[in-house]
Structure formats: C-alpha cells, structure tokens
Design a protein around this nucleic acid. Sequence first.
DNA 1: TTAAAACATGTAATTAATTACATGTTGAAA
DNA 2: TTTCAACATGTAATTAATTACATGTTTTAA
Lengths: 179, 179
Amino acid sequence: MDIIGQRNRLQYIILGLLSQQDQTGYDLTKAFEHEIGEFWQASHSQIYPQLQRLETAGDITHQDQIAGEKLAKKVYQLTAQGQKKLAAWVGEPSPELTATKDEFILKLYFIKSANDPRLGPMLQEQTQLHAEQLTHLQSRRAEVFPNQAAIDAAYGHYLILEHAIEREKHYVEWLNRAQ
Amino acid sequence: MDIIGQRNRLQYIILGLLSQQDQTGYDLTKAFEHEIGEFWQASHSQIYPQLQRLETAGDITHQDQIAGEKLAKKVYQLTAQGQKKLAAWVGEPSPELTATKDEFILKLYFIKSANDPRLGPMLQEQTQLHAEQLTHLQSRRAEVFPNQAAIDAAYGHYLILEHAIEREKHYVEWLNRAQ
DNA sequence: TTAAAACATGTAATTAATTACATGTTGAAA
DNA sequence: TTTCAACATGTAATTAATTACATGTTTTAA
C-alpha cells in the first residue's frame, strides 16, 4: 500500500485553477483557503516561483494590469500547451493512497488506556475543532452551490466539497463515539 | 482555519513508539507500514538520522546487539528525559486541522461536468483502491484486536484503527454515490 | 545450493515546504 | 485623515521529505 510523495503537483493545481479562470498569484494563493485547501496546501512563497517556472516552460503566460493608480498585477492564463499538460495529468491514473498527517491521531495512538485522564479533554478539543470546520464547510456549500445550476456548472468542485463535509461529519461522529 | 506545518513531529512519534517497546530503527521504519502510516509517513532515511539526534539530545539511548552470527542491531530505548518530552507533547493541545493531500480529489476538482467521460473510470479506479484498503484495515483489526483484552491494552491504537476503517468506508460510500 | 526477500544501517543529493524577510498599494472604517 | 486590513509580489533561509546511493547479513523458498 503505497503512499504518495510529492512530484510537483502544485504546478498542475495552478494549471487547473487557471483553466477555470485567468487570475493572479494572489488569487491562486487565496484559492488554497477554500475547498482545494482541504486537499492540498500551498503558500504564496511556493506559488510565485512556480508561476515563473510554468511561464518559462511555456505552460502559462501573463499580462500586466494596473489596478487603481499604480498597483501592478500579473494576470496569468493557460497556453495551449498548458491545457494539454493539465488534461494529461487529470487523465492519468492516481493509483496511490492519500497522505494524511494528523497530529491529534498520533497522540491518541500513544494513549494506552481508556482511563487516561488526558483522553477526555483531547477528544473534546478535537470535537469542537471539527464541529466548527463542519459548520464552516456547510455554510460554504450553501453559499457556493445555492441551486442545481451551480452544481452542474462545477460538478467536481461540488463533489469534493461534499466529500470534505462528510469527512468532518464522520470525524465528529467517531469522536463522539470514542468519548 | 489553520493547517498544520511540520515542526519535527517525527521525533515524538519515535519517542511514542519506543515508549511501547524498545526497538531498532528498522522496527520503527516498519511501524509506518501499519496503523501510524495511515496518519504519518516517514522512511528509514529520515528515521536513522533522527534517532542519532534524539540520542545526542539525551532523549533515547541504545544498546548494541548481535543477531545470529554478526548482524549488528541498535536497540533504542527511552530515557527519563525522553519520557517527559513525550508526555509533554501528548498533553499539549492540537489546535490545528489535519493536512490532507489527495491527488485524486484535486483532479476531480478540475472536472467541470458530470458528463465528462473521464469521470467514470476515475471513480471506478478509486473505488477499487479504497475498497482494497478497507479490506486490508478490517483484516488488520481482526488480527491485532481479536478480543476485548487486546482493545483495553492499546485503546488509542484501537481508536485510530477504527477511525481509519471508517474513513475508508465513507470514502467508498461517497465514491459510490458520486458514480 | 543458490537466489531472492527480508533484515539492518547508514549517507548524499535533490526537491518540497515552511517561516521569515522585504516592499509597496488600495480601500474601508474609525 | 489616518490607520488597519486586504491587495499584490517577490526572495532568503531553514527545515522536512523523497529518492538515490551504498553496504552487508540472515532467512526462506525454489
């Protein structure tokens, strides 16, 4: 049972986001605060250099824009080559399992007894954390997918938001059962 | 909603594993193939140097052992200081959410329409992958926790195995619903 | 008996990711 | 009107993680 390593998936995520709409490095950075951030993390200090590499490689180009008086923006867009590269990646099999890193679960692993006094507070803390996240995701769903048309227009996005919601729901249920 | 970074959690996992029993770097490496591997990944090339650093720091010590004719082993054990360090880590709050990295989910995010011809095969591939993992984890549970006494003796371990099983179960259910 | 898999321990090179440093603009609220 | 948050883009330094290199022993199955 293999676990994935990192073979520059960030480049494909950037291509994918740019396939949805032309945008700046700043916009891309913000995207990781929403749904994709549930399944991949990246910060602006990774994103800006990666944009430069993708442009050098000919997968994207950019246009300079001035917002307001003199705020310089670089609005990136896919090239035909970038589109092909994205399609090739999406079409490839993904035969490896997800790499989860959960510090709380690790700590739990080292708790031997159900009577350990640390167990209760730990479970409560996590219950609150995940319940909050669940609420956040649910309101996000209501906001982003108010009707069937919105779902049809971004079906994959809808599926992964559903997945994230259910993940949190079951996490909370498991925590409650453990308590 | 913060996502965890990496602040050398590996050292604590090693301390935790050594708190369960004295063992070698090789044994620790193997441990990541089982339950903890579901929630953290590390390879021998991270583990051996980390063992050296922990020993220098005084958290662990080792004894040399010869297996068979001349196969040299280093069996590591916690020091009192290492025990304290482990307990302090377990007792700390874990206020950050899990960092998941799921390449398949990312690809899905970039599928716009429910009619995309790539969608069916993608979902089928993942269904098989996660169904296999579920079966594996269930047989692992039967093996490691054949009775209540085994559960009572390693309650945290039992909880996280249950969690991993349910995670896979719900993943498969979600995939089936998406299909 | 021999070949392959598993046991056992390391280091080196590369890539990925985090955290910190660095600078400037614009819009909104006090 | 000024100050704070958000917008916007980068680089540098450090740490974490992967992949490859490197070597040798023991057990198991063909």
